[in-house]
């Protein structure tokens, strides 16, 4: 029976992933802010077959609570086989351009909180000598684009942080996977105009995540073709890139 911790557990991608683990009878511990959604999600996961599903409230920006919350998790689960870090906000890029506080707040939510959590989790996993740390970054971190470079900056920070941590963790038998989804139809992207051809469903992403954790993939682009799209995008010369509206 796998023991799974999910941070940002009410995210559409995280829920789809949790549902897959529930079917395998995992024990799940969920952290996020939306209590009504968490309560309903735990009922769902138990109905799907989860051995247990518990939740606690956590605003990831409330960093002073990280230690105590993680302690409680360990007390409940014992060891953690997989932690999935899934919280995030796309933010309002335009507003971030006009308001320093808002810009930094987006960075806090998407990067600082994750770095804080990973720092504690890394030490816990090192002691465990095993398990998987799965972190959702984004293709948006591969190259800054005018439409969402604040978000992209935070994701780039996460990616780079995780690359370093991945190598450190490897030495103690802990696997860290960096997950870079493309465009996914979730509440985060609702109402945005997106090229229909490129939009994936959360469950497709979840299937890839579960498989990649199993296969111990280091960096997962999901769906797979984003690897090639991003390879193209990072190689566009900046003289040309500046003229595009991405």
């Amino acid at each position: 029976m796998k023991k799974i911790l999910i941070i940002g557990a009410t995210s559409a991608i995280a829920e789809a992933t949790a549902k897959r683990y529930a079917k395998e009878r995992a024990s799940l511990y969920l952290l996020a802010r939306n209590e009504e959604r968490l309560a309903s999600l735990t009922a769902d996961l138990k109905t799907r077959g989860a051995s247990s599903a518990l939740y606690a409230l956590l605003d990831v920006n409330d960093r002073s609570r990280h230690e105590e919350v993680l302690k409680e998790v360990i007390k409940t689960l014992g060891t953690i086989d997989v932690v999935l870090i899934a919280h995030g906000t796309l933010g309002d890029q335009k507003a971030c351009e006009d308001n320093v506080e808002q810009a930094l707040f987006e960075f806090e939510t998407n990067a600082v909180s994750t770095i804080a959590l990973l720092t504690r989790l890394a030490n816990l996993f090192e002691k465990q000598h095993g398990g998987t740390i799965a972190v959702i970054s984004s293709v948006a971190g591969d190259r800054g684009r005018p439409s969402n470079y604040l978000y992209g900056t935070a994701k780039a920070a996460i990616t780079t942080f995780c690359q370093g941590l991945q190598t450190r963790m490897f030495k103690s038998g802990v696997h860290l996977i960096i997950i870079k989804p493309g465009i996914v139809a979730t509440p985060m992207t609702e109402g945005l105009s997106m090229p229909a051809m490129l939009v994936a469903e959360p469950d497709q992403i979840a299937a890839d995540i579960v498989r990649a954790i199993e296969k111990k993939t280091d960096t997962l682009y999901t769906p797979w073709f984003w690897k090639y799209i991003m390879l193209g995008i990072i190689h566009v010369p900046s003289t040309l890139f500046k003229k595009l509206n991405l």
Binding site: A12, S40, L41, A43, D44, T47, R48, P187
Partner: peptide, 16 residues
Amino acid sequence: RHLNHLLDFDKNTGIV
């Protein structure tokens, strides 16, 4: 479409 949770299943009656 986001109100997509299972709430209960009774395996004796098959009522979901």
